[in-house]
Design a binder for these strands. Sequence first.
DNA 1: TTGTACGCGTTATCAA
DNA 2: TTGATAACGCGTACAA
Lengths: 345, 345
Amino acid sequence: MTNDTRPTIADVARRAGVSKGLVSFALNGRAGVAAETRDRILAVAADMGFSPSLRARSLSVGRAFACGLVIGRSPDVIAADPFFPSFIAGVEDEFSISGQVLVLAAATPGRHEEDTYRGLVADRRVDGVILSDLRADDPRIALVAELGIAAVTLGVPDVASPFTSVSVDDGAGIRLAVDHLADLGHTDIAHVAGPAGMLHGRSRADAFERAAAARGIRSRVVATDFSAADGARATDALLDADIPPTAIVYSNDNMAIAGLGRAQRRGLIVPRDLSLTGFDDAEIGRHLFPALTSVATDARGWGAAAARALLAATTGAPAEARMLPDPRLIVRASTAAPRAGTQTA
Amino acid sequence: MTNDTRPTIADVARRAGVSKGLVSFALNGRAGVAAETRDRILAVAADMGFSPSLRARSLSVGRAFACGLVIGRSPDVIAADPFFPSFIAGVEDEFSISGQVLVLAAATPGRHEEDTYRGLVADRRVDGVILSDLRADDPRIALVAELGIAAVTLGVPDVASPFTSVSVDDGAGIRLAVDHLADLGHTDIAHVAGPAGMLHGRSRADAFERAAAARGIRSRVVATDFSAADGARATDALLDADIPPTAIVYSNDNMAIAGLGRAQRRGLIVPRDLSLTGFDDAEIGRHLFPALTSVATDARGWGAAAARALLAATTGAPAEARMLPDPRLIVRASTAAPRAGTQTA
DNA sequence: TTGTACGCGTTATCAA
DNA sequence: TTGATAACGCGTACAA
C-alpha cells in the first residue's frame, strides 16, 4: 500500500546471505550468532539503513510500544493546572529514549472515562496506562486490572491495587505551609481543600488538620472542586465568618490565585490582613502581586519516575510503592505575620 | 504471545463457513458479497464479538490510525498556556468518534524537534501531525512535507505549504481590544508582543499597529518570548518610560497577569492608572482583581476543526485554508477610561 | 544456523 | 456476480 521502499528484514537477509531469523537474532543481540556473522549482518543492515517495522513487530510480539494517559477532568480544570504539561514533559523525557510513545486520550462528551480505557485496550493501542487524579474507591483500578494491562498510579490508591504507585507526600508540603504560618504567629488558619472524593485533595486536607492540631491552631476546612471559581467562593465564605482566619492554605495554586483576587476585591491587603499559600508553584504565581508562597513539587521528575515505573511494569516487574522527594515550600510575599490585634478569640 | 482469546477473522470465517477474504469484504461493506451471505457473516461476527485487530490492519493497510502533536515549547511555557488543554480536548472530541488516537510527543533535552518528527514517521506511528505555534519561515513545513505524511497547520504559514490550514484571525481580536481602549479614551497604548519569530505573535503585533494607526493612537510594541517573566520585564520597561502608556494590550494572558502584578507592585491602581487586556481568556483571569479583560478564542472548537481537517487530509482531501469564527473581546474590570490629565503629550 | 509457521487482516488473482 | 485461494506486510519464535 505504502510506496515505502524501506528495506525489510528479508532484504537484509538476502544481501547478507543468511536467513531472516538470523538477522533478527543478530539485531537483537541474542546468542547463537557467530561474532563474525553478526558483524557482517549488522554492517549490511546499517548500510541498507534498515530499521525494523514497528508495526510488524507490534503484530508479532503483541505489544504497542505505547502507553496511555487518560484525562478525566474537564479541559477547563486541566488548563488551569500547571501540573500536566510538566508531568507530560517528564514522561517524554523517558519515553523518548526508550522508543515509547505517549497516547493521550480524553473522556469526551460522547465517550465516558471507562469507555476510553476500554477502547484503548480493545484496540491494543497501549501496553499500559498512567492513572492520575486518584479518587476515593477509584473504579479505574479494578477496571484496568480487569483489562489486563500494566499501570502505575500517581499516589497510593485507597483500594487494593496490583499496580506500582509513584507518590509524592503532599502532606509534607501542607505541613511545611502550616508550620511556616504558625511560625509567623498565625493561630487561626483555614484550608481550602479539593473534593474529598479525590485522594490528593483528601490527603492534603488530612495533613492540614493534623499539622494544625500539632501546632495548636484553630483550623477549618472547606471543600471545593479544585476550580478557581470554587476557590473564590470558598474564600468568600471564610472571609464572611464572624472571625475570619488570618491565613488560608489552598490545595492548589489556581484556587489560591482566585482567593487572592477575592481578598483584594474585598479591600484586604495581602499579606497584611490575610496570608495565603498555594500548592503546585505555578510559574505565574511568582509574578502576582504579592508573589504567591506555594508548595513546589517536581512534576517533571514525577512524570519521568512514573514513566520508568510503567516501562518496568510492562516488562513484568513486580508492583512496588515508590516515593519521590518531599515537596518544598517556596516562601514569597503572600505570607506574613498576622496583624497584631486582628485575632480576638 | 498474548493470551488473547479474541476471535480472529479466520474464526469468523470458519464459523460462517466462508473464506477470510469474504469476511473482510462483508465487514468493510464492499461489493461482491451476496446480501444474504453478508448478513450471515455480519451476524456471526457480531455474535462472536469480533472486531478486527488494529495492529494487523495497521500492518496490512499501512496506516497508524493515529495522529501526532509535537510540543516544541518548553513545558513551563505550555503550563502557563490555557490553549493546549482545551485544544487537545477539541481534538479528542473528533478523534474519539473516528477511532483515531492522539500521540503526544515532546522535544526533550535529548531529542530535538526535528528528530521527534522523524522518529514518529520512521516508526510510522502517525498518519499525520498538527503543526502548532507556527514560526517565521518554519522549517517544519518542508520537513513534514519531505517525510510524506499529512498535516494541518494552525494558522497560515509564511512559506509555501501543501497542507490545510485552520486559522483564527488573531488580528481581529487585537483590533477589538484596541478599539475598546480607544473608545474609552486612551490615546497612548502599548503592545507586549510575542516573539517576532512566531507567526501568531507577529500577526497580533501587526494588527495592533494597524489598529492603533487607524485610531490615531500613539503606539509602541515590545517583543517578548511569551513567558510571564518576559511579560513582567516588558511591563516594567514600558512603565519606566518618561511618558508611560495608559493602556497595555498583551499578546497572551500570562503576560497580562504578570504585567498586572508588576503594575500593582509599582503602586499603580488598575484600571485607574493603567488599563490592561489579555489574550486567550484563561479561566483564572476572571478571578483576578481586577478581573482581566481578554480576547477569547474557541480553542476547543479549533482543536475539533483541526482534527477534522487532518482526518480529511489523511484520506487524501486536497489542502485548503479554513477560517474559524473571529475571537471575541470579553470586557471585565482591567480596562477603564484613562485618568483625566494623565496624558500630557 | 536455517527453514518455516505464526500473528491477522487486506487485497489481488482466479475459478465457478 | 459470488466466492475461494493465496500472497503480502514484517518480524519473531521454534523445530529441525
